[in-house]
Simulated scan of single mutants.
Amino acid sequence: MSHPDPARGADSARLLEAILSHVPFDGWSETAFRAAAQDAGIDLALARVLCPRGAVDLAVAYHRRGDAAMVAALAAEDLGALRFRDRIARAVELRLAGADRELVRRGSALFALPQHAATGAKLVWETADAIWTALGDRSDDINWYSKRATLSAVYGATVLYWLGDESEDGAATRAFLDRRIGDVMGIEGAKAKVRDSKVLSALLAGPIWLAGRVRAPASASATAGQGAGDQPAGGAAR
């Protein structure tokens, strides 16, 4: 059995920290990656072993570090008195509170490129999965997918709105997020009405039966949104 090399993990963490000061000027680019390796005192050849895709791998690591920080922050909060929709909103707020706006802006530009769009979509899915898992979601059927898909859409739209928000203390972003969550709750209400309607249930018996056969991945939290080429650099993340 192979074991992670602690030295390589430390080198990856140093690369990530080193690139953050260059990204606002050069983006998550080859220029920023080379500068990070130089600043961290890591040979460029070793840096490429640690991050085969260069700055892209570090952008992935930055995002995942943010997810980990959000999960830790949620665990430290008392959410018992909040409605479930407010718990979701709080999770998204914590996720954005721990992010640097310019680094995220540059990351959004990177993952909007066709060659990196799939990686960007996987990262948003991972964030949605991290939120649902942290909030205690135990669904194991098609709802596992639908919850994460809808929250991915809400989170992605909120991030884009947040990037341009100049309101005091992010009030406009919070209002936008609340509206998006309200839209999702409306969809869930419509789904409940379909299930409760005997006529509609009869008409949709086939699709409903098929949906009932769908199951979440065996190791949902470990596999959701992951790809063979999307391993975090040294395990670091946003």
Results as ranks from 00 to 15, higher is better:
Trp162Tyr: 04
Leu58His: 02
Ile187His: 12
Ala73Ile: 00
Leu15Pro: 02
Arg238Met: 14
Ala224Val: 13
Ala45Gly: 06
Thr31Tyr: 06
Arg101Ser: 03
Ala222Tyr: 06
Ala112Pro: 03
His63Thr: 04
Ser108Tyr: 02
Val49Gln: 08
Arg174Pro: 02
Ala153Ile: 08
Gly66Lys: 03
Gly156Thr: 01
Thr173Glu: 03
Asp230Gly: 09
Arg215Ser: 14
Ala112Gln: 11
Glu30Thr: 11
Ala128Val: 02
Asp11Ser: 14
Asp78Ser: 04
Ala37Trp: 00
Gly98Leu: 01
Ala205Ile: 11
Asp140Gly: 13
Arg8Tyr: 04
Tyr145Pro: 09
Lys147His: 11
Lys191His: 14
Asp183Ser: 13
Ile42Tyr: 01
Glu102Asn: 09
Gly54Arg: 03
Pro217Glu: 07
Lys122His: 14
Ile88Met: 10
Glu93Ser: 10
Ala172Ile: 08
Asp43Gln: 07
Gly27Pro: 01
Asp141Pro: 01
Lys147Met: 05
Arg48Gly: 02
Ser2Lys: 11
Ala81Cys: 05
Ala172Asp: 14
Trp209Pro: 04
Ala118Tyr: 06
Arg8Leu: 12
Gly136Arg: 11
Asp39Met: 02
Ala73Gln: 07
Gly54Pro: 05
Leu160Trp: 07
Glu102Trp: 05
Ser29Tyr: 06
Val104Thr: 12
His3Tyr: 10
Leu50Asn: 05
Arg34Tyr: 04
Arg101Met: 00
Leu151Ser: 07
Arg179Phe: 09
Ala99Phe: 00
Ala153Glu: 02
Ala47Trp: 00
Phe84Gly: 03
Leu203His: 13
